[in-house]
């Protein structure tokens, strides 16, 4: 019988056992408000849409999501509880996925608490609520991808700060891989298929499409595959590094 729900429950509760959860949610809500209204020009755009809100999520998440992910495994290794966890009769899959899902649901919870945005934009005008829903789905998938990367980095580093920095760096690479400045570096020497491959790894183009209301199965698969791949890498890294 799978013990995934037990791991999930403990992990989710542990977020709320410390001030971490509340601080994170507060900062997330404040920053997403600041980004939307000041930097995004929500009112100035004169459109009933949450695009100014979603546009900043890849950047907002770049620093906030690694902060949730950094403790996933680094803390277990530092405190030695990983030895307890790994000698209990649970599978690697249950442990890795249970922990990841708890972090993902927590991120989703923080995201749901931005619902006043939906109320505001519906009060002010007549937005495309379908696009708003896909925007939320896209944003949550994006958070999941960041978290899966963070899970692997957290397993790699015993120190949470290093895990944080590694996660930010890798996520940043995934964001900018679609940018001209990166692609230009490839275009001089690399064949076209490689440039396309690098560009297609980017979070931004996928996320933009979903947040504009276009749900393409390939984009969904992209995020889910990315999450699965990084979680598999987490399991491998844990086996290699757990005893260090």
């Amino acid at each position: 019988m799978t013990k995934l729900p037990v791991i999930f429950k403990r992990e989710l509760a542990s977020y709320f056992a410390t001030p971490l959860a509340y601080v994170f949610i507060l900062i997330f809500l404040v920053l997403s408000g600041v980004f939307t209204f000041y930097l995004g020009g929500f009112f100035e755009s004169g459109q009933a849409s949450l695009a100014p809100f979603f546009n900043f999520h890849p950047w907002l998440y770049l620093f906030l999501v690694p902060a949730i992910a950094m403790r996933l495994w680094a803390e277990e290794r530092k405190s030695g509880t990983i030895e307890l966890l790994m000698t209990l009769p649970i599978t690697r899959f249950d442990a890795v996925t249970g922990k990841f899902l708890a972090a993902w649901v927590f991120a989703g919870l923080a995201l749901l608490l931005t619902f006043p945005m939906i109320i505001t934009v519906n009060y002010l005008g007549e937005p495309d609520n379908g696009a708003i829903i896909t925007g939320y789905i896209g944003s949550w998938l994006l958070a999941g991808a960041y978290l899966a990367i963070g899970s692997c980095m957290s397993a790699l580093a015993k120190n949470q700060v290093i895990a944080f920095i590694l996660t930010v760096s890798v996520c940043f690479l995934f964001i900018v891989s679609g940018f001209p400045m990166v692609l230009d570096g490839f275009s001089a020497w690399a064949p076209q298929w490689m440039i396309d491959a690098v560009a297609s790894l980017s979070f931004l183009s996928r996320f933009d499409a979903i947040s504009k209301g276009v749900i393409d199965l390939r984009d969904l698969l992209y995020f889910l595959t990315l999450i699965a791949a990084w979680l598999a890498a987490t399991a491998v890294v844990i086996d290699l590094k757990k005893a260090d």
């Binding site: 037990v6 542990s14 509880t81 009769p89």
Partner: peptide
Amino acid sequence: PEGAPCYGDMTVRSFLEFIAEIR
């Protein structure tokens, strides 16, 4: 395990209940 590692942020009861559920 050596040093008896436990999840420090849990109460004794919730920790033992967690272990019981795993078992």
